[in-house]
Structure formats: C-alpha cells, structure tokens
Design a protein around this nucleic acid. Sequence first.
DNA 1: CTAACTTTGCGTATCAAAAACGCAAAGAAT
DNA 2: ATTCTTTGCGTTTTTGATACGCAAAGTTAG
Lengths: 229, 229
Amino acid sequence: MAFEYEFPRPALATDCVVFGFDGSELNVLLVKRGIEPYINVYAFPGGFVHIDETVDECARRELYEETGVKDVYMEQLYTFGDIDRDPRGRVVTVAYYALVRSTDYFPHGGTDASQAGWFKINELPPLAFDHKKILETAKQRIQNQIRYRPIGFELLDQKFTMTQLQTLYEAVLERKFDRRNFSSKILKTGVLDILDEKVQNVAYRAPRLMSFNRERYLQLTQEGFNFEI
Amino acid sequence: MAFEYEFPRPALATDCVVFGFDGSELNVLLVKRGIEPYINVYAFPGGFVHIDETVDECARRELYEETGVKDVYMEQLYTFGDIDRDPRGRVVTVAYYALVRSTDYFPHGGTDASQAGWFKINELPPLAFDHKKILETAKQRIQNQIRYRPIGFELLDQKFTMTQLQTLYEAVLERKFDRRNFSSKILKTGVLDILDEKVQNVAYRAPRLMSFNRERYLQLTQEGFNFEI
DNA sequence: CTAACTTTGCGTATCAAAAACGCAAAGAAT
DNA sequence: ATTCTTTGCGTTTTTGATACGCAAAGTTAG
C-alpha cells in the first residue's frame, strides 16, 4: 500500500469488444476469467490503466497480453461509470471496440490451451460485470459506423469477393441486400480496386477478387464524401 | 492524505461542453478558472468524480455547481486519457455535452458578477488544458446528432417559428437550406405541432408558432423512423 | 458431349425522395 | 394605395434507391 491521495479515487480500467468475421457470421473474442470475481466466467479482454500509459495504450496492451491480438483497428466506445458495476469496489471502465480478420488469430471456438476464443455474436455465454451492456453498445456502434465509414474492410482479408463483402454487411446490419444493387453502389464509390485475379477451386463461376483502396478513400473523405450503404 | 491504494491511480474528472443558441449563433458556456493551473483562463465546467456518485452524476453536479445549469439534455461525449493533459498530474476526464435554451440561463457575454458566460462558438477565448480538442470533438458530435435525432429542439424555446428552427440547423451544420424544402421536410415527419398562435409585434407577416411533439417522436422512433435533414 | 444448374457481371425500368424554384397572401412601412 | 419583406403552399426537375431481366462463366449430372 504505497500510493495515497487526499481524496478517494475510482480505479480506472479498459475493456475491449473485439469483433471478427468468419465468412458468414460475426464473432466476438472473449476470455475466461481466471480469478475472482466472476471466476470462470467469460469477459472482454481488459484491465487497469497504468499510471504511465494513455487510456488508448492500456486498451491495446491489455488486448495483446490477454489474447495476442495486436496492430488492429480500434476505437473508443463509451465509458461505463456506474457505482456498483464491479463487486471489488469502484471501477470505471473505458470500453473500446476492435475489428480484426478473425482468420489471422484463433481457431474458432477456442482451444483448451487458450483461455481466449471466438464466439458467435448470437450464441454468447453469460458475461461478467456489465459486459452484456457494453456488448449491446458496441453492436449498435458498429451498425452505425459501417454505414458511413468503410470499417468493413478491417474484417476481411486484403483480397475479397463482392459476395464476401455483402455477406459481412448483411451479418452486421442484420438485413439482406440485392446482390446487383449492393455491388454497383459500392463500386461507384471508387474505393474498391478490381484485381486481375479470381478465386481458385470454387464451385460454379469463379468471382474476381478486389481490394480496398485506402488512398482513394482518404481523398474522397476530404472532399466530403459519404460512404452510406 | 487518507486514501491509499496498492497501485497508483489516475484522478478521474468530468467536463461538460454546454451549447446554447441565441437565435442566430451557436454559443458555448465557459467558466473562468479561479485557481492554478490555468488561473484566469476559460475552461468548460467540470471537476473530479466523487467516490459515491456515477460519472454521469458528477457531470451534472459540476455543471450545476459552477454555472447553475440543471435539468438539461446531456450526453457522454468521449474520454480523454492522454498522460500530460493536466500539469497537476495524471487526470483522465470523461467529457459530456449539453444542450440548453440559452435564454433560460445567463445573459449573453456573461456578467462581472458571474465567472460563467456565453461565448460565440467562432469567437472563443483561449481554453485551458486540452479543452480546444474537446470542443472540436463536441462540435463534430452535435453536427452528426442533429441530422438523425431531434436534439435541435433542446436549444429552442418551447414555442418557436420554422425560421428559428432553420436558423439553428444552419448554425450547427454551417450550411444553408432552402426555406420551403426545409419546412416541408420537417413538417412531413409529423414531429411538429402547428399552434394556433402567431408571433406578436414583428415587422412584416407574422409567422405561426410551433412546438415539438415528443410523444409523436417517440412513437415514430419505435417504428424505425429516421429524422435526417 | 450435352443439358441443367448456380453464381457472377452488367444492364434497364420503375419508384421515391431531394433539390430547385414559382407565386400569391399577410401585413408592416412609405 | 403602393411598395416591400416574409410567409405559406404549391409544382417541376433532378437525383438516387429499389426491383428485376438476362446472358456469360463455369461446374455438375446424365
């Protein structure tokens, strides 16, 4: 007990909701807690803010330490500051969300060797603390974000087909799109490069691959461009 | 020095960006700091989170204590957690924004008796800490919010004219609208009640007054209604 | 090898909303 | 009475969203 202050201070933590996409469904990365409270209950990766790191840095550090995930797209979500959200005492948490290509990391379903694993967003186990509430906030946020920012590309491999992109949008927004309208709407924005390459070893007609053109996107946003689907 | 912890903890504070509207321009409520650091420099009302209040409650309490403003529309904005944002040491702040009818509170420009006052958003004095950055974040947020939520009505008197509403939208979004298109677009959403009352003592043709129908708005949002302008 | 089938890629027709704008009535100022 | 500004209610034009037709690519089945 070495750190003392004139007034009591809440502890400050971060938690991170990591979304992944497996080609058909949206997944969330959870870790099983090894200590009380909520021992053996799943929770989002997170932990306490160190005094010599920014809150953003804390979120990235904790994510890496607990799951090995690093160098990913991450944004602050919301700060949860209710009094009784942690039975250990007063803990305020700054929640983040991250988007990753889930194939880059764990096998789906997790392994026994690892305490971290992917879960389908509609088949989640009970969550510790107020993490259910955090998840709902995160879900709403990406549904809003994907409509006017090209965050979807963070969830796909660098090369992807139009159908894969559409399936992702349908999974996130929980609705269907017309294949032809979706394609022309995305293509006419100009943020996709069509590659001279097709998918191999596929049943029926092989689709062409495409990739996200980040330079073109940045150029368009500066001109006041809107990415709505 | 009575409160000690095993690990060092950042101090946790809130700050609130209060927007007001005076009929033609958007204003921001600032308080002049009476103590170091940044003594005599303007800042947003705010202060440290008490151990027995939620973060939301802290934002409301500090706003009331420093400016007398209470019972207003308020939302969490963003948490600023850089290491060196406060010269006193590590302070993380959860920023909020609030919308008020500025006529309900202070005279514009502030008085000598009060340390709090309204400033035109484009003529602000230098701000303490990283409050310039907080302001930019808040400005972007209300520009986004006003397009799909009827937050504009929080900034007007209960009875207002269509031209007043349009002037507000133009001030917030920093663009002009066609008077006739703006009016019909707002009216066809059904969230406005047209009152059997006209503005008095006005040059030229007197416009009718209207008011926001909150029940109708809630009903429409539940049906999946979108308020975009 | 041919026919059937699925997916892709590109097009057009139809419908709804956004933007531009015409015009006369209300009502004060001259 | 005339002029002037603002209001209120429309129509026309343009743009974008949605629905859907159809043939080519390429695999599967007979």
